[in-house]
């Protein structure tokens, strides 16, 4: 699933890693190529987590600019360009969700999210809209608890504490399920760093 290594020097044929190397030197054409390849996944992931389109667009813009700004810091030895970019996108989306939540909690002392509604929404949305057959199949291979925990955390932006509450499962179990769920996904997807 990793992009093919660059064979020519045309940006369209280059790997994301190759593009980042050029972008780090200020190559705007390389950035345009990278934008076109990654903006759908960056925006899509942020949208999945944040749900609000306007906010998602704002956060996606921040992340895509951050890729330009910090391309110099990308280190291919530590992981793929795809993981570098998606990690950045996910973290920004999650941080935004949490700060929005904190603000809502301050405004509204009740502040308790309806657990069951939140969970069902996320789960349904994810199941209905996952375009990637391979990922869907990999998720299907997980136990129910692994799948629910991973989806709530990753697509729902929940902390493992919230996941534990939502699934009425001990904290330690949730930590372990997130980890062994990822291991099983990794093995099914055949992803290697």
């Amino acid at each position: 699933m990793r992009p093919l290594r660059a064979v020519g020097s045309s940006p369209a044929q280059m790997s994301l890693e190759g593009l980042l190397t050029r972008i780090a030197k200020g190559d705007q054409a390389a950035y345009v190529a990278l934008y076109d390849r990654t903006s759908p996944v960056v925006y899509g992931l942020i949208r999945r987590v944040l749900r609000d389109p306007a906010q998602s667009e704002e956060v996606a813009q921040e992340v895509l600019l951050e890729v330009w700004r910090t391309a110099t810091r990308f280190d291919a030895e530590r992981g793929s360009a795809n993981a570098w970019i998606m990690t950045m996108a996910h973290r920004r989306a999650v941080d935004r969700v949490r700060s929005e939540q904190a603000a809502r909690d301050r405004d509204d002392k009740v502040g308790v999210r309806d657990a069951s509604v939140g969970f069902d929404e996320v789960a349904e949305e994810v199941q209905a809209r996952l375009e990637h057959q391979q990922v869907r199949r990999a998720l299907d291979q997980l136990t129910d608890l692994q799948r629910e925990a991973v989806q709530l955390a990753y697509y729902g932006g929940r902390t493992y504490r919230e996941v534990a509450e939502l699934l009425d499962t001990p904290l330690g179990t949730v930590k372990t399920r997130l980890r062994d769920g990822l291991i099983r996904l990794r093995d099914t997807l055949g992803v290697r760093s």
């Binding site: 699933m1 345009v32 996944v41 813009q61 996910h90 990637h132 990822l182 992803v191 760093s193």
Partner: peptide, 29 residues
């Protein structure tokens, strides 16, 4: 690092069309 690769695949699976105006704004920025 390994899990980040796997998580990124979950992220890629959520791909959606980015709003049209975003590209021009980012490239200007």
């Amino acid at each position: 690092a390994e899990y980040a690769e796997t998580a990124a695949e979950l992220g890629v699976a959520a791909a959606a069309n980015a709003p049209a105006g975003l590209r021009a704004r980012v490239l200007t920025e």
